[in-house]
């Protein structure tokens, strides 16, 4: 029945458009509010009148936004690099090298990945306190040098999908394990490595709990996620400025997403659909 089909087509589109509208409303209001003057935001107005660009300059004047962004970049960037150094090789071993405890090893990776980090929080904090590094980025960054369970898991899944023949061929050519990893596996798993990096980067960029626990005592070491949460404290009703900072905190992530969207989607598709 063509009419019924057309009807359901229209209904589905209408539903989709309505949903899209609902999903966009928060973004629109946040951005609009970021252009309102301080008094206007308290009146419940919906449209900025007049447009106040000054909230954005004010945001940079009242908060060390540059510093916060730099800290986030330091935290997320360094963590990602360290994660790659530690997790790519072991993921290769787990995927392609047969050894006695490989089953146990993978089991441990899964459990470590799934357990909430809070279950190890108290002793780890005590250790960092013992070495007197609470207040610095070390407790947040250094663990990644020793592997991230989730990244290992993700990378292993990628390596699994690379046919064994490539490895055999490389071994014939006289490559050792490192040679196989660096010359064959890494180039072939680029999308996977990119995806693992992006996820690690975003996770650190968005992290609130870690900085709250370890660097909140030192405002010089606040990343943007923590800074934003604290910023409302000193300016709790200057909603225009707060929304400007909120918009600014979101912008880099969205920009990265749009530039890396292909890698992102390709990475997800590769991990997921093939299998």
């Amino acid at each position: 029945m063509p009419t019924k089909r057309a009807l359901s087509y229209v209904a589905e589109h209408a539903l989709l458009l309505a949903l899209a509208f609902v999903f966009l409303v928060p973004v629109v209001f946040v951005v609009l509010t970021s252009f309102m003057g301080g008094n206007q935001t308290l009146t419940g107005a919906l449209w900025p009148n007049p447009f106040e660009w000054s909230n954005y300059t004010k945001a940079f004047d009242t908060a060390p936004l540059g510093r916060w962004f730099a800290n986030s970049l330091l935290y997320a960037g360094t963590s990602t690099l360290l994660m790659l150094v530690s997790s790519v090789p072991v993921a290769y071993v787990l995927a392609k090298v047969r050894f006695r405890f490989s089953g146990v090893a993978f089991f441990v990776v899964i459990v470590a990945m799934l357990l909430p980090p809070q279950v190890t929080q108290v002793p780890l904090y005590a250790v960092w306190a013992h070495f007197r590094v609470v207040g610095t980025f070390w407790p947040l960054i250094l663990p990644h040098l020793f592997g991230s369970a989730f990244s290992i898991f993700l990378l292993r899944q990628f390596f699994l999908s690379i046919p064994k023949e490539y490895i055999d061929a490389a071994r014939m050519d006289g490559n050792g394990e490192w040679g196989i990893l660096l010359r064959i596996m890494v180039p072939m798993a680029k999308p996977g490595i990119a995806a693992a990096s992006i996820f690690m980067f975003f996770q650190c960029w968005n992290d609130y709990y870690g900085p709250l626990l370890y660097t909140s005592e030192n405002p010089d070491n606040w990343p943007i996620a923590y800074g934003l949460a604290s910023f409302h404290g000193s300016h709790s009703t200057d909603w225009g400025v707060i929304m400007a900072v909120t918009t600014l905190a979101t912008l880099p992530v969205v920009v990265v997403f749009f530039f890396a969207q292909r890698t992102f989607v390709q990475g997800i598709t590769l991990t997921g659909v093939k299998g």
């Binding site: 990945m113 407790p139 968005n206 992290d207």
Partner: peptide, 24 residues
């Protein structure tokens, strides 16, 4: 530090779900 970040679950879920049945 892993967090309750929901984004992190994207590849986790995908990768595992699709790979678990066969790990030849």
């Amino acid at each position: 530090m892993p967090d309750a970040n929901p984004i992190a679950t994207v590849p986790r879920a995908r990768a595992a779900a699709h790979h678990t049945p066969n790990t030849p």
